[in-house]
Simulated assay, not measured.
Amino acid sequence: MAELFNSAIEALCDFVEDQHNEKIKVIKDIAAAAVGISILLWVIVIGMELWRVLVD
């Protein structure tokens, strides 16, 4: 889901500004970082659930 939002943000940025713009680059970097954080949190939750299942 986060990757879909990232793709939408990037497409919207490309539509609004087709020339190189440092502000657009920052916006795209933040959107990509949000995807990375979402993946990291997903891995942590899966790890916690596996731990709970295997220990109990």
Rank of each mutant, 00 (worst) to 15 (best):
W51K: 08
N6R: 15
D29I: 02
N6M: 11
K28C: 12
A32H: 12
L54D: 06
G36W: 02
G36S: 14
M1Y: 06
V35D: 08
S7M: 04
I30L: 14
K28Y: 08
I44W: 08
W51H: 05
V55M: 10
V53D: 07
L4F: 06
A32Y: 05
L40S: 15
A11G: 03
L40F: 14
L41E: 11
Q19V: 09
D18C: 01
E22Q: 11
A34E: 09
M1R: 05
R52A: 14
D14Q: 08
I30M: 13
K28H: 07
A2L: 06
E3S: 04
Q19C: 03
F15M: 05
V35Y: 06
K25C: 02
F5I: 03
V53N: 08
I44P: 03
L41H: 07
E49H: 02
F15G: 00
S7I: 02
V16H: 01
E10P: 00
E49K: 05
S7L: 09
G47H: 02
I39D: 14
S7D: 09
I37D: 14
L4E: 14
D29W: 02
D18R: 05
V55T: 15
V35S: 10
A8K: 04
I30V: 15
I24C: 09
I27M: 15
M48F: 14
N21E: 03
I39Q: 14
A34F: 09
A33K: 13
A2Q: 06
V55Q: 11
I9K: 03
I24P: 01
I24V: 15
D18L: 01
V45Y: 09
E49L: 09
H20G: 01
D14V: 02
A11Q: 10
E10I: 00
D18G: 01
D14C: 05
S7R: 10
F5V: 03
K25Y: 03
H20T: 07
R52I: 00
H20C: 01
N6F: 03
E17Y: 05
F5M: 06
V35F: 07
E22D: 13
E22G: 00
W42L: 05
